[in-house]
Design a protein around this nucleic acid. Structure first.
Length: 480
RNA sequence: GGCCCCAUCGUCUAGCGGUCUAGGACGUCGGCCUCUCACGCCGAAAACACGGGUUCGAGUCCCGUUGGGGUCACCA
C-alpha cells in the first residue's frame, strides 16, 4: 500500500510550494490506489499558530486535494499534529540514547555561538557542532542531569564513511559523514526538531514514499542515519525541484505572491492552479497543457519529471485561468462572481463604511471599486500623496515596508488590532499621524479620500492590502 | 567558502544516438476577424552554456569548465 503525506508547518500563510508538493503526493497516491495523509508539523512553539493551521487546511480544501487521514478527520495513525505527539518523540529519543545512536548535549547557546564564531574566523570547511558533549562519560552525564542542566539530544553521526541517499529522481547521492553535523534531535524544551519528528512519524504512519522539495536533500543523510539507528526500513526518497522566482532563486514572498489566499481572492480557479502546478516540472505524455486532476492521475509517473527548477510564471497561470474562466457558461460565471467576489456578505461588510458617502445608490460603485479591484492605479495626485511633506520617497517606501512586514505576520486583519499596530509604528518612526496615514491610505486604496483606514483595510482583507502595499513601495522606489 | 543538485527559445517544456535545417505553449512583435476592446485565428523573431572525449553519427552518453540553485539553526 502506497502511503504518502504532506507535512506543512503552520508558521505562515498557506504556501503555493506546499500546494505544489501536495499535488504530486496526492496524484501519486491516487495513481497507486494509495493513501494521502495530512500531518501538521507544529514543533516550533514560538512560530506555530492554530490560525495558520486552519488557513492551511482551508486552502488545501479549496484546492480540492483531500486527505485520507489528518488532524481534522483523524485516522488510525493519529494524532496528526506533532505538538500532540510529545510522548512519542521523548520515548524514541530515549530509545536512541540507549542504542547509542544519540547523546545528550549540555552546551549553552553561548558556547555554541562561540564555537561557530571561531569556525567562521578559521574558515573551517565544515562548520558544525564540535562534538564536545559526545566525549562526556556516563558519570559526567549523570552529574549534569542531577544538576538539572538543560540539554538537547543530538544524533551520533559517524566521523568517517559515506551515507548514501537513494533518490528516485537523481539516483544515488552520497554524502561524506564528515560533512554531516550532529543534528539536534530533541530541543531543550522537549520538542523534537523536524529531523526526529519527521522520521519517527513517517515510520509510525507507515509512509512508503517521501515526496518533498529539493531543499531537503542535504538533510536526508541525517534521516537515513536515523532510520538505520532505529533499525527501520527507509521510505523511497523523491526530491522534487523547487519552484523559483523569475531570478531563479527559491520562490519567496519578497519576489512573488506565494500565499494561496492571494490566488484564491484574486479569482484564480482551483483547477487552474492545480493544472498549472501540474505542469511545473511535469508534462502530460501527449504534451497537452490543459488537463484536469482526474486526467493527470492515470497519466502520472516520475519518469516525466524534469529537474530544472521551474520559474513560477504568473502570466502563464493567468492565461490558463482565463481558459477555465471562459469555458464556464455565463450563468455559471455569474454565479461564481456573486459567490466568490461580489457576495452579499462582502457588500454587508462594506455598506456601513460607505453609507455616509453616498447620496444615490449608483454612488456606491465608485467606493466599491477599491474594495473589489486587484491592483489600483496610482494617479499623479495619488503618487504625490504617497510622500508626505518633509519626507522622501525612500522614507515613505521604508515606512510602507515596515507596515507590510506587520501585515504579513497577521493571519487576518482586524480593525482595532491594525489600528493599534499602525499607531505604534507611527510612534516608533516619530511621524505625525497625518504624515503616516495618508500614504498608507493612498497605497492601499489608490485614493486620498476613503472611509476610516483600519476598517477599510480589515474589510478589504489582508491579500489586497499587502499586494497594494507592495505595489506602492515599487512605485516609490521607481521614483527614487 | 565546503557539500549537494541542476543546465534546450525571456519563461514552462518536447526530445530518452540518426526522423533536429530542434517541436509545442506563455510572453513579445506583425496580421486577420471586428463599431472598440477582449476572445479567436494566422504568421514572425527567439534556445541545445562552453571545451574535451565515446561513436560511422551527440541536444541526446562520459569527463571537465562555466553558470544557476539549494544547504550548512535548539526553523521547518
Amino acid at each position: 500500500m502506497v502511503r504518502v503525506r504532506i507535512a506543512p508547518s503552520p508558521t505562515g500563510d498557506p504556501h503555493v510550494g506546499t500546494a505544489y508538493i501536495a499535488l504530486f503526493n496526492y496524484v501519486f497516491a491516487k495513481k497507486n490506489n494509495g493513501q494521502f495523509v495530512l500531518r501538521i508539523e507544529d514543533t516550533d512553539r514560538t512560530r506555530s499558530k492554530p490560525e495558520w493551521e486552519h488557513m492551511i487546511i482551508d486552502a488545501m480544501k479549496w484546492l480540492g486535494l483531500s486527505w485520507d487521514e489528518g488532524p481534522d478527520i483523524g485516522g488510525p495513525h493519529g494524532p496528526y499534529r506533532q505538538s500532540e505527539r510529545g510522548a512519542i518523540y521523548a520515548e524514541h529519543a530515549e530509545l536512541l540514547l540507549e542504542k547509542g545512536g544519540a547523546y545528550r548535549c549540555f552546551c549553552t547557546e553561548e558556547r555554541l555561538a562561540g564555537v561557530r564564531e571561531e569556525q567562521r574566523k578559521a574558515k573551517v570547511a565544515m562548520p558544525g557542532y564540535d562534538g564536545f558533549c559526545r566525549k562526556l562519560t556516563p558519570a559526567d552525564v549523570k552529574a549534569k542531569l542531577a544538576d538539572k542542566i538543560p540539554f538537547v539530544v543530538r544524533l551520533v553521526v559517524p566521523d568517517a564513511g559515506v551515507t548514501m541517499v537513494k533518490d528516485k529522481l537523481r539516483g544515488e547521492v552520497s554524502f561524506e559523514n564528515a560533512q554531516v553535523d550532529d543534528q539536534v534531535l530533541l530541543k531543550s524544551d522537549g520538542m523534537p526538531t523536524y529531523h526526529l519528528a519527521n522520521v519517527v512519524d513517517d515510520h509510525l504512519m507507515e509512509i512508503t514514499h517521501v515526496i518533498r522539495a529539493e531543499e531537503w536533500i542535504t538533510s536526508t543523510p541525517k534521516h537515513v542515519l536515523l532510520y538505520k539507528a532505529f533499525g527501520w526500513a527507509e521510505p523511497e526518497w523523491i526530491h522534487m525541484p523547487l519552484l523559483r522566482n523569475a531570478d531563479k532563486s527559491k520562490i519567496s514572498k519578497r519576489k512573488n505572491p506565494v500565499s494561496l489566499n492571494y490566488y484564491r481572492e484574486s479569482g484564480y480557479l482551483p483547477r487552474a492552479m492545480l493544472n498549472y502546478l501540474g505542469m511545473m516540472g511535469w508534462t502530460m505524455p501527449d504534451a497537452r497543457e490543459k488537463f484536469s486532476l482526474e486526467e493527470m492521475i492515470p497519466a502520472f509517473g516520475f519518469d516525466r519529471i524534469s529537474l530544472g527548477g521551474p520559474v513560477f510564471d504568473i502570466q502563464k497561470l493567468t492565461w490558463l485561468n482565463g481558459l477555465y474562466i471562459r469555458e464556464q457558461s455565463a450563468d455559471d460565471l455569474a454565479a461564481s462572481i456573486s459567490r466568490d467576489l461580489l457576495s452579499p456578505a462582502a457588500l454587508e461588510a462594506m455598506t456601513p463604511l460607505i453609507r455616509e458617502r453616498v447620496n444615490k445608490l449608483e454612488d456606491v460603485v465608485d467606493h466599491l471599486v477599491y474594495f473589489f479591484a486587484g491592483d489600483v492605479a496610482y494617479s499623479a495626485d495619488a503618487r504625490a500623496a504617497l510622500v508626505p511633506k518633509g519626507k522622501s520617497a525612500k522614507d515613505a517606501a521604508n515606512m510602507l515596508a515596515e507596515l507590510l512586514e506587520i501585515v504579513d505576520g497577521l493571519a487576518k486583519i482586524e480593525a482595532a488590532d491594525i489600528e493599534a499596530k499602525m499607531k505604534a509604528l507611527c510612534d516608533k518612526l516619530g511621524w505625525k499621524t497625518k504624515e503616516f496615514f495618508m500614504p498608507v491610505r493612498v497605497a492601499v486604496t489608490g485614493r486620498t479620500a476613503t472611509p476610516p483606514l483600519h476598517e477599510t483595510m480589515a474589510v478589504m482583507g489582508k491579500e489586497r492590502c499587502r499586494r497594494r502595499l507592495r505595489a506602492a513601495i515599487a512605485v516609490l522606489k521607481s521614483q527614487g
